[in-house]
Design a binder for these strands. Structure first.
Lengths: 180, 180
DNA sequence: GTCTATAATTTGATAGAC
DNA sequence: GTCTATCAAATTATAGAC
């Protein structure tokens, strides 16, 4: 797949932020992972803040885009919440990393405002998606509350599973959703 | 106990880690917050790794200690899970910070092994406490699974509430526990 | 677009005086 | 226990050549 240079930078930065947050990636680290110099990374993204905003936007678009629409999932006979849980599980298994916006969300206090704002967009769009999913599945009341519960549980499940190095923690945690 | 200075260093370091994680505190920042020099901080904790381990141990002991025993809570007629939720809520409201071990748990991949090990202790002890709480409250089966669900949900609820800057996200999220 | 070179600052850590 | 002084390395960022 023909990734251009900016995409490659975004992908490497994403991986680093998902492993250790905003303060764990540097222009030099990204550059050497790609095989270029740090000044070349600055050519594409002039400041660290700019790069982090771009990564967050890219991550959010990819994540929401990969989900598809809740309505389509329901009308194809599948459970949109199960699909949503699988998206988080895949992120943990395949990329072996945290949710980028879960990580940044925890670090809110030390982030540039523009990055915080973009991280909030992730959560807003996720809550919207889940709200629609619950409504389309027949939940009349409390769809937004259910949405907040679901995304919160999944972010937390990633943390416990990540630190314990045991995916069964993730699976145990998300079973809580079966009861609602 | 090496109360005064060392305690102060631990408290300042705790606050900084809870705001931005392992890479967001430095010997100089801690020193200037206290009014001493960075070399004096090194006198008490020779390396950053040592300091982080000490902070994590201290945080875990304080957190578990403040909870009291689940048995005592139950026999005094109160709900231990409600008390547990309140402990997390207080951490968010009063200190305006994340759970230290939730933060470090997310950053596992970039932490020294000794810090990861100590962070795991936090989660192990929390799961144990909750397991006992659920068993003492009359739950026969699945107490450990419930424990994992509860601590995961609370860690995630702190993230969403923190990033959105709205405590109602925390309150909405934890209502999921009422259904189990 | 990428490079070399460099500036200004911060970092974790140490040596030795008091 | 705290200080001054210092170090080597890393950080974000810029200027200018090719």
């Amino acid at each position: 797949m023909g990734e251009d240079r900016e995409q490659l930078i975004l992908n490497v930065a994403e991986e680093m932020i998902r492993q250790g947050g905003y303060n764990s990636f540097s222009f030099r680290n990204i550059a050497s992972a790609i095989g270029i110099k740090s000044s070349s990374v600055h050519y594409h993204y002039s400041t660290k803040e700019d790069l982090a905003v771009a990564v967050t936007k890219y991550y959010t678009d990819q994540f929401i885009g990969a989900l598809g629409s809740p309505e389509d999932i329901v009308s194809s006979g599948k459970n949109p919440i199960s699909q949503y849980v699988q998206a988080f599980r895949q992120a943990l298994v395949k990329d072996k990393g945290m949710c980028l916006c879960g990580m940044l969300g925890a670090e809110t206090d030390i982030l540039p405002e523009s990055v915080v704002a973009e991280t909030r967009v992730f959560f807003q769009r996720n809550v919207e998606w889940l709200e629609t999913a619950y409504r389309t599945s027949g939940e009349k009341d409390g769809a937004k509350e259910k949405a907040i519960q679901t995304v919160s549980l999944l972010e937390g499940a990633m943390i416990t599973s990540n630190v314990m190095g045991d995916l069964s923690f993730f699976d145990a945690a998300v079973k809580l959703l079966d009861k609602s």
